Amino acid sequence: MLSWVVTFLVIALIAGILGFGGIAGASIEIAKIIFFIAIVLFLVSAVVGLARGRSRI
């Protein structure tokens, strides 16, 4: 999922350099949304992992 963020950031940089402001802005917004979704999924999985705990033998 984070590779998608990097892809959209590269697209935004290239579009910004070439003067396509609309495409660059849209790519940045998409990258932000995907990044925050990835952070939320990571935090949820961390909390679930802590809640389940480790089995003690």
Rank of each mutant, 00 (worst) to 15 (best):
residue 1 M to A: 07
residue 1 M to L: 10
residue 2 L to V: 11
residue 2 L to S: 15
residue 3 S to A: 14
residue 3 S to W: 15
residue 4 W to G: 14
residue 5 V to F: 02
residue 6 V to E: 10
residue 6 V to Y: 05
residue 8 F to L: 11
residue 8 F to T: 10
residue 10 V to T: 13
residue 11 I to F: 14
residue 11 I to Q: 08
residue 13 L to H: 06
residue 14 I to S: 07
residue 15 A to W: 01
residue 16 G to W: 02
residue 18 L to P: 00
residue 18 L to K: 12
residue 19 G to K: 03
residue 20 F to H: 15
residue 21 G to W: 14
residue 22 G to L: 10
residue 23 I to H: 04
residue 23 I to E: 04
residue 24 A to F: 08
residue 24 A to S: 10
residue 24 A to V: 00
residue 25 G to Y: 03
residue 26 A to H: 04
residue 28 I to W: 01
residue 29 E to V: 13
residue 29 E to L: 11
residue 30 I to Q: 07
residue 31 A to C: 06
residue 31 A to M: 06
residue 31 A to K: 02
residue 33 I to M: 14
residue 34 I to Q: 06
residue 35 F to A: 11
residue 35 F to K: 09
residue 35 F to L: 09
residue 37 I to E: 14
residue 38 A to C: 10
residue 38 A to V: 12
residue 39 I to S: 07
residue 40 V to R: 03
residue 41 L to N: 08
residue 42 F to E: 13
residue 42 F to I: 09
residue 43 L to A: 14
residue 44 V to D: 00
residue 45 S to I: 06
residue 45 S to K: 09
residue 46 A to H: 02
residue 46 A to M: 10
residue 46 A to L: 13
residue 47 V to I: 15
residue 48 V to T: 10
residue 49 G to R: 13
residue 49 G to I: 00
residue 51 A to S: 08
residue 55 S to R: 12
residue 56 R to W: 11
residue 56 R to I: 12
residue 56 R to Y: 12
